[in-house]
């Protein structure tokens, strides 16, 4: 605007000069290249996802148009055209059941202990360091733990036959996955509990509530959304893990048949989606499309679980 009107006095000439020198950007080639390179690296990492998903979608689409829902209801097979994911889905959901029933209560209880009850002593510090380290242990090592403890120690009786867990069984795999995600559940729940303001606790103690009453009635409801988010993270981690369950002995064969009792089924052989995917990925290239389709199913289940959790969390938050 100053440029439009001719300057009337020396003062405004100065103003004009200053404005111009500020407006004319010196060309900063290096800076611009730098920024573009950074942006490219971000775009590249996002592009990998898009590309990967489109690849998976392509294969899944071909299977869907060829076979329809048949792929979802069939069991494993040596023939790519006949192979389906039903047993994998069932196995994955059963294993998630173990995680929900074991890792969640124990994990949340541990987090409550560490945040609300634990005195400031060596044992507490040790537990905390230990949990942090457990999150960094590679999943294949958890598989070895499961193999040694659940499959062999608790799995074989004196005649080397199926014991308590049934050896390479649903129970062994479920326990292993529960152990694997336990540190994640503890850490995320502890963070959520820590985020509840101290003033809420003080108010509760101030009217004569006991520690457990404060925890159960005030802290946990406030921390529930965060805890829920953490547990969903744990579920998706458990659903995607292949190495430990393969070590435990998941096979691409089949689940126990229907005429066994519930306990016998749990002590029987098993499979799960990641194991199915692993098995098919190593097959001939005829299995490419069904593998992609199985991956698609796994991703859909994961997204559904995440979505449910987000929905639950939003409902929880509205109450407060």
């Amino acid at each position: 605007m100053a440029a439009a009107a001719p300057p009337a006095n020396p003062a405004s000439i100065t103003t004009l000069a200053v404005e111009r020198s500020l407006a004319s950007r010196k060309r900063d080639w290096l800076g611009q290249v730098f920024q573009v390179v950074l942006l490219l690296s971000l775009i590249l990492s996002l592009a990998i996802i898009v590309f990967l998903l489109s690849n998976v979608l392509g294969g899944a689409w071909r299977v869907w148009t060829d076979r329809g829902t048949d792929f979802l209801t069939e069991g494993g097979s040596r023939q790519a055209e006949a192979a389906g994911v039903w047993q994998g889905i069932r196995g994955t959901l059963t294993l998630v059941g173990f995680v929900v029933l074991l890792a969640f209560p124990i994990g949340i209880a541990s987090a409550i202990y560490l945040e609300e009850y634990a005195p400031d002593n060596t044992l507490t510090k040790f537990i905390n360091v230990n949990i942090r380290n457990l999150t960094g242990v590679p999943s294949v090592v958890y598989g070895l733990l499961g193999l040694a403890v659940f499959v062999r120690t608790f799995g074989l009786d004196r005649n080397d036959e199926g014991g308590l867990t049934g050896g390479k069984s649903v129970i062994s795999a479920g326990l292993t996955l529960a152990v694997l995600v336990l540190p994640i559940v503890i850490i995320t729940s502890a963070e959520a509990i820590r985020a509840v303001p101290r003033s809420i606790r003080e108010a509760g103690y101030g009217v004569g509530a006991s520690r457990w009453e404060v925890t159960r009635m005030l802290v946990l409801p406030s921390a529930a959304p965060g805890i829920l988010t953490g547990t969903v993270l744990a579920i998706s981690r458990a659903m995607g893990e292949a190495a430990p369950i393969l070590l435990i002995g998941a096979n691409t064969g089949f689940f126990s048949s229907g005429n066994q009792s519930f306990v016998e089924q749990l002590q029987g052989t098993f499979t799960a989606l990641p194991a199915v995917i692993f098995g098919w990925a190593r097959e001939t290239s005829e299995f490419r499309d069904v593998t992609a389709a199985a991956i698609f199913v796994l991703l859909v289940i994961t997204v559904l679980a995440n979505g449910t959790a987000v929905w639950l969390r939003n409902r929880f938050e509205k109450q407060w």
């Binding site: 003033s199 003080e202 108010a203 509760g204 101030g206 406030s222």
Partner: peptide, 10 residues
């Protein structure tokens, strides 16, 4: 006890 900042429960 009544505290420095009002601290209602949510």
């Amino acid at each position: 006890m009544v505290f420095q900042k009002p601290n209602p429960f949510p």
